[in-house]
Amino acid sequence: MVQHDKRITIMTGHYGSGKTEFAVNYAIKLSQFSPKVTLGDLDIVNVYFRSRERKAQLMEMGIDVISSSIEGDSVDIPAVAAITSPVRDKSTRYIVDLGGNDTGTMVLGRIRPLLDLSETDFFMVVNTNRPSTSSPEGILKEMKSIEAASGLKVTGFVNNTNLIRETTVENIAMGDKILRQAEGLSKVPIKYISYVEEVLHEPLPKGLSGEPFPMRFYMRKDWM
């Protein structure tokens, strides 16, 4: 359960894995249990679909959002703001939404020396329908490059296998099968299995790894 995860939760993964949608949903879920939640949008890779686009909505829910200090949708320079204060502020749960791949994790260099690893989770969001993470080997290769770039060890996988609105339970189960093999090889546990409730027409099958984590589309508009 999100309230039992460590105080600082960093979301990483291959780009297109669904990190941002998961991070936004995670922050909203967490805000139901924690009085103070901060979402750090440290995505210096993507130019569209960044969690800062939902800043107003998240702030209304009581979630503090940190993003670039240079305001404007059209800013695509890798600038981030006061990302270290929630690391020091022990009273806040801090969710960090990184950009994709090893490149996206480089921004962690700023907070890495300040992190207390005993209070930090480093979750790797995986969608096995993405070509580069469609096999256990691909997932581990991606994980190693992210770990090398960030200096952190992945502490849990999030099975976010989906085909957007064409997602089926069979598809999620296939993702589970692949990710379990990656879990076996890496000894990194599958923490969550995330899915958007409105697109699934059947309940999740029993016996899948990870805690079920139902989500809503926050980043994707109805017509997308």
Binding site: N129, R130, L163
Partner: peptide, 8 residues
């Protein structure tokens, strides 16, 4: 071939 999720 099964569908994959890709950026445009």
């Amino acid at each position: 071939m099964a569908k994959v999720l890709m950026k445009g």
